[in-house]
Design a binder for these strands. Structure first.
Length: 377
DNA sequence: GTATGCTTTCGGC
DNA sequence: TTACGGCCGAAAGCATAC
């Protein structure tokens, strides 16, 4: 049943979000099934001291003990004191391989496929379901079974008329859940949920809302638009209103290669010593440069990121007159930027990072580029 | 007023 | 309330151009 008006379908889109459950930790469980009934905590160790670093992902057993993503490792250890828990360092390359295998399966279920990060993807299923949410439910179940059978991994899936609803639906039942929200159920589905479930409502905005007496998405939907704009500014105010009603027109769009490449690392100790920082910067530049060459691109922008003693973040960046892929150029500019940053900031530096972006592809026919030069690229 | 470019910060995973 | 990684894209803020 398809209604057409000037070539435009009036009926709803069918959008699915697939979210691999506690991904890194689940992959580690798959690799070593004896971990399955224990708390598993996958960590990023900074190398500064024995336990410095943060928790990347924890399985649900660990979460029962209060372990969460982003938590300092030592605190996770304190919460799991006297418990037979597993702490593991990230094995990013391996997770990437597993992710690629899963994404290849998911892609087969989508008209349009958009991977978001390593463990999430949006699938536009409108065409293959002819707009039917019943058909989407069946496809989603099939997808979950296939990921389980072929990759031995569980995921949580949400289906809705747009990305916003699909995302919140996927969050509704986890892990290993499936939630379908038909268009006519969107408002009643969202209304009782806490506003924090909306993207863009974090601690800061959440606090402001609390003071306005807004606790649920339903409260938000009923709130006067003008008052929202006054409190949160025009852009956010209007976004919040439409989000509360489950309105979102953002298309599912295939993503290309990342638009930036960066490396950041923690210094052995906080410092303002240009020499020590430059040494680390040289290493980071080298890593970034390898990735640039692998992708066969040049960059037109170089950025520097510093995390200071108080954990605040500062960045500086510079646009090149013409694109470059030269390691020396990268290092020189990164050092120039760190010099500038140290001039403008008093605190010591805890972590330092290098980023390149605004890529241009190299021409295959070198003779032609030599002739024309690099203008406009 | 609108579009575009550049830099910096914010926040999700 | 404080501990603390390494990424990424989006948004914000500002300047300039049309």
């Amino acid at each position: 049943m398809v209604f057409v008006c000037g070539g435009t379908h009036l009926e709803s889109r069918v959008i699915t979000l697939v979210d691999l459950d506690y991904f890194y930790a689940q992959v580690e469980e798959r690799r070593n099934p004896s971990f399955r009934d224990k708390p598993v905590v996958v960590c990023v160790y900074s190398g500064r001291t024995e336990d410095s670093g943060a928790v990347s992902t924890a399985n649900y057993v660990a979460r029962e003990f209060g372990v969460k993503s982003g938590m300092p490792i030592f605190l996770a250890k304190r919460k799991l004191k006297d418990v037979d828990a597993v702490f593991l360092p990230m094995d990013h390359a391996f997770y990437e391989e597993v992710s690629d295998d899963v994404m290849a399966i998911l892609r087969g279920f989508a008209d349009i496929f958009e991977q978001v990060g390593i463990d999430e993807a949006y699938l536009d299923m409108t065409r293959r379901t002819s707009g039917s949410f019943e058909a989407a439910y069946e496809l989603a179940q099939q997808l979950r079974e296939e990921v389980k059978a072929r990759e031995n991994l569980t995921c949580s899936v949400g289906v809705g008329p747009n990305k916003l609803v699909a995302k919140i639906a996927a969050d509704f039942q986890k892990p290993d859940g499936l939630t379908v929200v038909k268009p006519e159920r969107v408002e009643s589905f969202l209304a009782p949920l806490p506003v924090k479930r909306l993207m863009g409502v974090g601690t800061k905005i959440g606090k402001m809302m609390e003071s306005l007496g807004i606790e649920t998405v339903g409260d938000l939907a009923r709130y006067d638009v003008q008052a929202l704009i006054e409190a949160f500014g025009r852009n956010l105010g209007i976004y919040l209103r439409s989000a509360s009603l489950g309105i979102d027109e953002a298309p599912v769009q295939e993503r290309g290669e990342p638009e930036s490449i960066s490396r950041i690392s923690t210094l052995k100790e906080d410092s303002r010593d240009l020499e020590a920082i430059s040494e680390r910067i040289a290493e980071l530049c080298k890593d970034v440069h390898v990735k640039v060459l692998e992708r066969n691109v040049s960059f037109r922008s170089v950025g520097l990121i510093a995390v200071l003693t108080d954990m605040s973040i500062r960045s500086r960046s510079k646009t090149l007159e013409s694109p470059s892929r030269d390691l020396e150029v990268l290092k020189d500019i990164a050092n120039e930027l760190v010099g500038r940053l140290l001039d403008e900031v008093e605190l010591e530096v805890r972590r330092i990072g290098v980023k390149v972006s605004r890529f241009t592809q190299q021409e295959k026919q070198k003779a032609l580029t030599d002739f024309i030069g690099n203008r406009g690229r």
